[in-house]
Design a protein around this nucleic acid. Sequence first.
DNA 1: TGTGTAGTGGGGAATTGTGGAGAAGTATGG
DNA 2: CCATACTTCTCCACAATTCCCCACTACACA
Lengths: 143, 143
Amino acid sequence: MFFGEFTHSIDSKGRVAIPAKFRKFLEKGAVVTKGLDNSLSVYPIIEWQTLAEKLAKLPLTQSSSRAFVRMMLAGAADVELDKQGRIVLPEYLRIYGGINKKVVIAGIYNRIEIWDSEKWQAFKSESERNSGEIAEKLKELGI
Amino acid sequence: MFFGEFTHSIDSKGRVAIPAKFRKFLEKGAVVTKGLDNSLSVYPIIEWQTLAEKLAKLPLTQSSSRAFVRMMLAGAADVELDKQGRIVLPEYLRIYGGINKKVVIAGIYNRIEIWDSEKWQAFKSESERNSGEIAEKLKELGI
DNA sequence: TGTGTAGTGGGGAATTGTGGAGAAGTATGG
DNA sequence: CCATACTTCTCCACAATTCCCCACTACACA
């Protein structure tokens, strides 16, 4: 499964190198879509399928979940690794993520998140300031 | 089972030698991640898996647990012992831990903690000063 | 004093990340 | 239906980092 944090850069064609450790899980195909907090999420095709099924089952009566499903499904694009292990991020996703030159690629268990580097740093320092809360969580989980 | 306290040094490539006593538990693989008080935690891969599963089950909808999961999982790096029994600490973890040249490696039951040597000393004398208080807490816990 | 183990350091090879040039494919306008 | 411009894909090449191996020193134990 995915974990770790990597800083890579996007070239003029919108390509990002996927960390070598992650590649073998994406070889069969992958899907990029809009994630939470203005991040982009990359799922291996298998994970994506089960996720899409779950999304399809959400009650469409609630407008909030309707919006969420739309965001995830309509925002999705399937991507392939090129010979150097890179994927191309479609322009509309780069805009959504506010992505400039530097990006952070983070492994989050069953998905990969792609963040604009500055946004990531901001998010991180924000949550490290709340480390008291975090200690509570650790206790709850018995870690 | 890990216990004891060791002082080692990090070389220019970010490598630290794991105390020989601890190595056999980490041979199958290990994961380093961010711990509390700016320490780093090393878990044997087996321990880590159960931990990661717990994390993966936390609700994504709550922003506080989202941040927590991101910090734990994205902060993690899987490491392997080289032939000399060392692991490489990724740069972002060295920064998080404020790690310079000297580190203290402490065994804490099911995990190993890595501290910057100075921070460790500071933390230790701090808690020794509060040892009375701590003893009180221990009594509450029935120890 | 020899032998083994543990910790430290460094050199060279292989892998990874990055950029760019050319070919193939797609769209647009006449 | 063709020609042109534009985008996308594939391939090649360089630079930097990481990994793997070997060597040295220090200490412990016979």
